[in-house]
């Protein structure tokens, strides 16, 4: 599965290739500047403008944000809850919250995509606990990381392309982690479990779990650092992007 990376030069990705095909292409993650960095920044600015328009009760802005992020919100909610109806409820709640309280997103503190992901995850975890529907990760009948996005495109194709690039990068980074490290990070993020709970679930010593989280997060940081440096308010101590 993890074939060795070869070459150091940039690889040109065919922009019209299906997402599943793009995901098969491997490249040295930290050496190639993303071709869509400018797109990401522009999209982030557009997102901030759309959120600002919500304050003026512009339903059109909500429609655009929904078209851009409903799949992400729904996917996160479904990944956490494993229940379509509940995931729909969470998706509706998240977008209604944005509509009612647009000021709760502060563009100076990061990108909208990060914020809405966090809201969706927290809301879904809260719902999961409330409904006592937590399921064991090993009960899942598929590998959530290896199964790559395969469904139809969203209602905002240009934005979807930018999102697909980020998604592919995250998938690659997660796939490159050793299984044990990937599992604890997934259980923590999507399962909302503490390290102690993860240790109880996996049967591994707590110290081992802590080490896996540390090493896994460090590798993800190394692999994805250019993504976060491109965001408004993101760290950039590399002298620029």
């Amino acid at each position: 599965m993890n074939e060795p990376r070869t070459g150091t030069g940039p690889i040109v990705f065919p922009t019209d290739a299906p997402i599943t095909e793009l995901a098969q292409i491997r490249r040295p993650l930290s050496r190639v500047p993303s071709k869509t960095a400018e797109d990401r920044l522009r999209r982030a600015e557009e997102d901030a403008a759309l959120v600002a328009a919500l304050a003026k009760d512009e339903v059109g802005a909500l429609e655009q944000l929904y078209d851009r992020y409903s799949a992400l919100v729904f996917s996160v909610a479904l990944r956490v809850l494993h229940d379509h109806a509940l995931a729909e409820d969470v998706t509706q709640e998240v977008f209604l919250r944005i509509w009612r309280q647009p000021a709760s997103f502060d563009p100076a503190r990061g990108r909208f995509i990060s914020w809405i992901s966090s809201v969706a995850r927290n809301r879904a975890l809260d719902e999961q606990r409330r409904m006592s529907r937590r399921r064991r990760a090993e009960d899942q009948d598929e590998d959530p990381v290896l199964r790559l996005p395969a469904e139809g495109r969203g209602d905002d194709p240009a934005h979807e392309a930018v999102l697909a690039d980020e998604r592919r990068r995250v998938h690659e980074a997660m796939r490159d982690l050793p299984d044990a490290q990937r599992t604890v990070i997934e259980l923590a993020y999507f399962g909302g479990l503490t390290q102690t709970e993860i240790a109880e679930r996996t049967g591994d010593p707590l110290g081992t779990i802590k080490t896996r989280v540390r090493l896994g997060m460090r590798k993800l940081r190394e692999a994805l650092t250019d993504l976060v440096e491109q965001r408004p308010g993101g760290h950039d101590d590399s002298g620029g992007t």
């Binding site: 996917s75 998706t91 999102l163 994805l224």
Partner: peptide, 20 residues
């Protein structure tokens, strides 16, 4: 910032059209 990207690791599923 890295943790926030983890949402993108969720398999993509689109909500039903009527939800919009």
């Amino acid at each position: 910032e890295i943790a926030e990207l983890m949402a993108l690791a969720a398999p993509v599923r689109r909500p039903p059209p009527e939800l919009r």
